[in-house]
Amino acid sequence: MNELLLVEDLTKYFPLESTILDRVLGRRTLNVHAVDAVTFALHRNETLGLVGESGSGKTTLGRTILMLERPTSGKIIFDSQEISGLKESELRKIRREMQIVFQNPVSSLDPRMRVKDIVTEPLRAFRDFDGKSADEAVNRVLEAVKLPEDSLTKFPHEFSGGQKQRIAIARALVLNPKFLVLDEPTSALDSSIQAQILNLLRALQDDYKLSYLFITHNINIVKFTSDRIAVMYMGKLVEVGETKDVLEHPLHPYTLALIVSVPRLDPDKKIERPPLHGEVSSMINPPAGCRFNPRCPYAQEICMTTEPEFREVVTGHFSACHFAEKLLQASPTERAVE
């Protein structure tokens, strides 16, 4: 099967703490709707860029797919195996195949461990590594991320941000996984370093035959790194498609707003009228109908009553908007701004 990962109706709610009084009075527990009925597929050797702003649920989605959080409902089918119902002990074997790189290089490395121990740690969870093969694995992966050999005995604080992120990537690769969740891996880095790490990630994907779920809030990065894009808003997927298609012919007003809001390197192309106003609505009590309707410049009555279906509008290009076809007919992004 060409699909490495298939996510079906995946939902993750975080219950808010209820006091004893609430329980006595029989009040329903309130939930934060972090991820709501998300469905998509990730093909082998592909990079799917998951784009969203704060409150979109993109990080929670990444972590839930990795089973670092138990899904509230829905299915995760990884390499033809349903993993959402597995116990922790059964998940262990599968964890070799899926790893994660976090956003903050400082907090993702234990400051009290040497680099060698940090990178070997994943190996220690599995018995089939002895000292020698472990050393080889570590050296190989260190070379792949272009860190010098003498890094092994050093501590994380002796490295710069970009180098720390390389260590984190090395750790994620040491088990030779098939799938990597990259949670905003360059957001905390300086721009000049960011480009280095993005290049590295791309090269590694070819060498290691990896599939990436690249989570970011920056649409520009997604253009460089991803084959396909998935856009999230308030826990829901609003658009999925090939990168070029989504960026040039967005089929959802939110995607359009995102694209327009990104500042360009050209002082003559200022964003005179910011496309979106207001803030994300309550995650505990999402709006009825389409969750984007309070801020959508094209909202109609149907948007406030009926939740739009996430459907395939054009081959391979999905959208959750009642009026996706209308957007399809509109001219490409540059002119769609007006």
């Binding site: 670092l68 262990r92 070799r96 899926m98 994660i100 234990d110 994943p122 220690r124 969870a125």
Partner: peptide, 21 residues
Amino acid sequence: QQYVEASRAAGHGARYIIVHH
């Protein structure tokens, strides 16, 4: 801290994490 989460993602259990991290 995220390094604890990274450890969990690698498959380590509570005992390992408490002792080593």
